[in-house]
């Protein structure tokens, strides 16, 4: 059976963009990948909005019922259960904060049985989690409602198109402090692909592309279902 990776964290930290990158990178390695959009608390900027990009890159997508419509009764479809007996690599893109992670609790029994990694995404430039202790508290709140344990932290500190090498390197002490305060290992720090060569050699950086864009942003292509 394939692995299960859950992406959760404070809203606006870049969970969807990270989930899309991990899914597309694994698909490019030749793996079969399914991405589950589990954000049923906010219909904007979810991975379902960018489902066309995922599918073009060979990733299967499970979206909430009525995603992309004006129906705000987003609910998890029955096909969600396919992730518990698939050979695919599965990535779950959860909604923001504890409110967005709560739906995971509904599946926590099955998730534990299957085995999982749960990545908490953090971003130093988000004011409500700029203090490492607040970031750690956010993680504990998420763990409590979804009844699962975070297994790793990803430092996704960025300032969108203003992200420079120093934007990322300045966040390294913060990322370590969050990891220490939460008692959860730091897995890696993301960096926009174009900046990867400017990064110090003694840290683990993961290059990412930016998929989550608005219509007027460079290279933007908003897809609708």
């Amino acid at each position: 059976m394939g692995g299960l990776t859950i992406i959760c964290g404070h809203y606006g930290t870049g969970k969807t963009n990270l989930a899309m990158n991990l899914a597309i990178d694994r698909a490019r390695e030749g793996k079969s990948v399914t991405l589950v959009d589990m954000d049923i608390v906010n219909p904007y900027f979810t991975s379902s909005v960018y489902a066309d990009i995922l599918r073009e890159n060979g990733v299967s997508v499970i979206s909430p019922l009525f995603a992309g419509t004006n129906m705000e009764v987003t609910a998890i479809p029955a096909s969600m259960y396919s992730i518990f007996d698939t050979a695919d690599e599965v990535i779950i893109d959860a909604g923001g904060d504890d409110a967005g992670a709560m739906i995971l609790g509904r599946f926590s029994g099955e998730i534990k049985k299957k085995g999982y990694e749960m990545i908490c995404v953090t971003n130093m430039y988000r004011p409500m989690t700029a203090d490492p202790n607040d970031a750690a508290e956010m993680i504990r709140g998420i763990e409590a409602v979804c009844r699962l344990k975070a297994t790793g932290i990803v430092n996704n500190s960025h300032l969108k198109d203003l992200t420079a090498v120093s934007t990322v390197t300045d966040s390294l002490p913060y990322a370590k402090a969050v990891s220490e305060a939460a008692g959860i290992p730091l897995l890696f720090t993301t960096v926009p692909r174009g900046l990867i060569n400017g990064m110090p050699a003694d840290e683990y950086f993961y290059p990412v592309d930016v998929y989550v864009l608005v219509t007027w942003e460079k290279g933007a292509r908003i897809c609708r279902q």
């Binding site: 809203y11 606006g12 130093m124 430039y125 988000r126 004011p127 203090d131 203003l162």
Partner: peptide, 16 residues
């Protein structure tokens, strides 16, 4: 807190 932060329009409006 860093000088520049990343915020959602709604959130920034409330804080402002």
């Amino acid at each position: 807190m860093p000088e520049k932060v990343l915020m959602k329009g709604n959130e920034a409006l409330a804080e402002a």
